[in-house]
Design a protein around this nucleic acid. Structure first.
Length: 557
RNA sequence: UGACCCAUGGUGUAAAGGUAGCACGAGUGAUUUUGGUUCACUCGGUCUAGGUUCGAAUCCUGGUGGGUCAACCA
């Protein structure tokens, strides 16, 4: 069965397997997912989560969750909590390996002192502006800081006093002493520590100096004995620095591997932009179903399985990529198709009156919940003289290939009778059709011996009197441009926001949904997959459309 | 105009020097109590120019195109 996995490794797996063969780091595999708690996780993080935890599992290794919380002014426990919830929801377990970079502040301080003693780090008094000016440019070398040659003793003393809070923010930094002429900007005496009198969400006011990403990340990996530190491509130029710290301090050696981050058409992925959409009210919060956040997708009705399968399907490589949203839609359709119950729901109703049906009779019609899965059982739906069908399912003057209801034509009502349209009633002023009068054939009730007569179409319907009103939220892509980050002159990504990304309508639902034991996601016949919104109550049913069904008739039109 | 990274159908991703495959997509047909689902078939690709080799998507060189890097962010 699994024969094909024998030799179809992605480039990261090849590196890992080679390391295993060579006995690198005792041939262990230990990965980590290291988010900064400064925002909510999105589908791009899901790729990283699936990758890191997936690799840990595949190679019988472990995966840590580590919060990269070295910048207190941007971080908050709100984000810590949401990240843990999202990772768990996706189906991954860090067991007892929950860590914070802030757990290592004392250790990192000691590492910095080691570098100072080796004359590989120094306290620099330049302002941020001066530092920026003397750093040079990629094509031009920088100039060495006048503080570069401070004595070890002076550096140790100054660094201790930085920690003790003797200096104001921004007055001094600790820098590595590497090479101001390096073609790699990150090697031009990068900042290791800065002074920041800010309250940290975990360490409180214990520290007023904070390590920079470069000084914290690799060492944290090393402390946790991470073997493979997988990150996105923009950190590729940081790798020489990552390795430099590990080597100079003399630490356990993890290997950093970079992959291309995920991009999806018709959406933005940067935390900054997503934050703007929330803060400026373009969407209703991080979990707005239009957002590409994990919590947004969850609220929309995506399943963890579908997202994991998506991550598996897109693969991993180093070239820039833009995944078409249709692939994400495929993944959720594929999953929901076999797990959701079918539900009759009429989104844009028009009345159908069965003239030859008894006035007061209400029959119970039986329908399978999921034709793909018999074990999902059956349900009963009331049927009566006055029904509602989809307005689109009737045409007074239809083209040839219209398979639905039209004057003189027959259709089957799903799980009920075959009906024939006899006449229509219109509003004399507007010309709008208000009633469609039909007759039914009593011999064609679903399940009866003579019910197998072929008719061109089958329609969904609800019984007018028993149907339940529901608020239906139809979501469309948030942006009108395939790549909202590809901005035309004089515009911003916000100019590509889709004003019609949310449409709220009132639909009529079969009453079965109110009975207990139903699933929280449904396939509405022909219209799409829907989930019950978290704000829904029995008095006010609210459905979110996860994704429309494919509709080849719509295309033909 | 520096360093580093990348280049396979429309979109992704495989092929460890030896048949360019898979998925989405698009198209055609069959089945169908929804035109969905399911099934079958089809479409379509190695950026370019040289070189090495019996043989190159794969190795080498040049070009072209794209990306990353000049935060006391991560």
């Amino acid at each position: 069965m699994e024969e094909q996995s024998a030799r179809s490794l992605n480039f990261i797996e090849e590196i890992i397997e080679e390391d295993i063969r060579n006995g690198v780091n005792e041939s262990r595999v230990h990965t980590r997912f290291p988010p900064e708690p400064n925002g909510y996780l999105h589908i791009g993080h899901a790729k990283s989560i699936c990758l890191n935890f997936g690799l840990g599992k595949k190679y019988n290794g472990k995966t840590n969750l580590r919060f990269d919380d070295t910048n207190p002014v941007k971080e908050d426990v709100e984000y810590v909590d949401s990240i843990m919830e999202d990772v768990r929801w996706l189906g991954f377990d860090w067991e007892d390996r929950l860590f914070y970079a802030s757990d290592y502040f004392e250790q990192l301080y000691a590492y910095a002192v080691i570098l100072i003693r080796k004359e590989k780090a120094y306290v620099c008094d330049m302002t941020a502006e001066e530092m920026s000016e003397t750093r040079g440019a990629p094509t031009r070398p920088g100039k060495e800081s006048p503080y570069r040659s401070r004595s070890v003793e002076e550096n140790i003393d100054l660094f201790a006093r930085m920690r003790a809070g003797e200096f104001p923010d921004g007055s001094r930094v600790l820098r590595a002493k590497i090479d101001m002429a390096s073609p790699n900007m990150h090697m031009r005496d990068p900042v290791l520590y800065r002074i920041l009198h800010a309250h940290h969400h975990r360490t409180g006011d214990q520290w007023c100096i904070y390590p920079m990403y470069d000084f914290a990340h690799g060492q944290s990996d090393s402390i946790e004995r991470i073997t493979h530190s997988i990150c996105t491509l923009e950190f590729e130029v940081h790798r020489p620095l990552y390795d430099w710290f590990i080597r100079e301090i003399g630490l356990y050696v993890p290997r950093q591997i970079e992959f291309a981050r995920l991009n999806v058409t018709y959406t933005v992925m940067s935390k900054r932009k997503l934050l703007e959409l929330v803060q400026q009210g373009y969407v209703n919060g991080w979990d707005d179903p239009r957002m590409p956040t994990i919590c947004g997708l969850r609220r929309r009705g995506f399943t963890p399985e579908s997202i994991r399968n998506f991550a598996e399907t897109i693969g991993v490589a180093k070239r820039d990529n833009v995944i078409d949203v249709s692939l994400l839609e495929f993944c959720i359709r594929e999953d929901l198709n076999r797990r959701t119950n079918r539900l009759m729901a009429v989104l844009n109703p028009v009345r159908v009156v069965i003239d030859n049906y008894p006035d007061e009779l209400v029959e119970e019609m039986e329908s399978v919940n999921n034709p793909e899965d018999e074990s999902k059982g059956k349900r009963k739906m009331p049927f009566s003289k006055s029904l509602l069908i989809e307005r689109d399912d009737f045409m007074e003057d239809p083209p040839n290939k219209f398979f639905r209801l039209a004057p003189g034509r027959e259709v089957r009502l799903k799980s009920a009778y075959i009906i024939k349209c006899e006449s229509v009633v219109k509003n004399p002023e507007t010309g709008e059709i208000t009633e469609i009068h039909c007759t039914y054939d009593p011999q064609t009730k679903s399940g009866m011996p003579e019910s197998n007569r072929k008719v061109k179409g089958t329609l969904h319907w609800v019984s007018e009197k028993q149907a339940v009103k529901a608020e239906i939220r139809l979501y469309d892509r948030l942006f009108t441009r395939e790549n909202p980050d590809d901005i035309e002159e004089g515009k911003t990504y916000k100019d590509y926001l889709n004003p019609d990304s949310l449409k709220v309508i009132t639909g009529m639902i079969e009453p079965a949904v109110l009975t207990p034991g139903n699933f929280d996601k449904y396939q509405f016949e022909r219209t799409g997959y829907f989930s019950v919104d978290k704000d829904s109550t029995p008095q006010n049913l609210v459905f979110n459309r996860v994704v429309p069904l494919k509709d080849s008739w719509a295309k033909a039109k």
